[in-house]
Every structure is written in C-alpha cells, then in structure tokens.
Amino acid sequence: MWTLLALLALGPAEERPAIAPVDLDATVFATCSAVAEPPAYYAISLVPTRQVVGTGRATGLAQMTFDRSPFGVELAADGSYRTTLAVEVAHLPSIDDHEFVAWATTPSIDRIARIGTLDEDGATTGPVEWNKFLVVITLEPVGYSEETSWSGPVILRGMSRSGRMHTMAGHGPFEQLECRTFGY
C-alpha cells in the first residue's frame, strides 16, 4: 500500500491532462446536432417541365437543412425530420400578373405544404416535415394565397434524396430487379 502511494505521489504532475471546463454549446451541439450548412448530398435539383413558354431554361436547387434541437436532429410529432428548405431558381421569366410559388408534397400528393412565393431573386425558404417529398414550383396569379394546393402549371419539379429509395415489394429478399427490367 505504501509503495503504491509513493509511486502515485512521485508521478510527474505536469504530464497529467488538464480537465477543461465543459462548453455545452461547443461540444454537445457540435457532436450531436446536425450541421447548420445544408449537406450537398441532400440537395434537390429542380428540373424544368417546359410546360410554359419561356421557362425551359430555368434551373434550380432546393437545399435541405436539418433543424437543430437540444437533443440533436429535430423531429416532428410523427417522427419525421424537421428540415428547412431553401429554394433558389434562376432564369425564370417575368410573367405579367403572375408569380412563382414553391411547394412541397408527399410522393402520393395527398399532403401539400406551401413553402413560399419566390422573391425577385427567385428564392424562398420554408419548413418541410416529411422524409420523402417532391418539390414543386408553380406559376400562380399574383396574390394567390391558397395554402393547401397549387392551381397553376408546374414549372419545375424535384425529388428528395430519400424519395429515390424503392420498396422491394414484389421481389424476394435480397433479390433486386432494376427499375427498367422490362425494357420497352
């Protein structure tokens, strides 16, 4: 016992690591929360539908940022991720008495959420609470304030990264058929 205590006492105090004060903001959030920058992996390319003359050159990107919470990624009441969608569209024409509106909708289009009207820079931001969804940019009359669905033509569309995941229904376990198995 005395030998052990002596050895401990002789140990070089300067080699012991100092214990720094805990900074919750710097450590817990940095390691457990999603980053604030939108991950490039989840960026959604917006493709023009060319349904309206003059919109075929439009290009766009919708960037997803996972919302933060004290417990990490923030979830909606149903367990879906809460994200903020930042939409930016370029090369859209100016059409009299009309404006462009961004929407998100589930793949089956049974639920629709208005993201917002594109500003003069072609940008808008809004929340989305679904794992799989489509992004839709439509042309609407100025002042169209309907929150539940669009009325005008679809100008651009995009699919969330998770929307690309397919069920294996119809196939056995570990037996995958490519989408275009049946050719044309």
Partner: peptide, 8 residues
C-alpha cells in the same frame, strides 16, 4: 409510374 412519385 416509378416510386418516389404518385401512383407507382
């Protein structure tokens, strides 16, 4: 119609 959209 493919998955990821309606009516697959």
């Amino acid at each position: 119609f493919g998955q990821g959209g309606p009516n697959s």
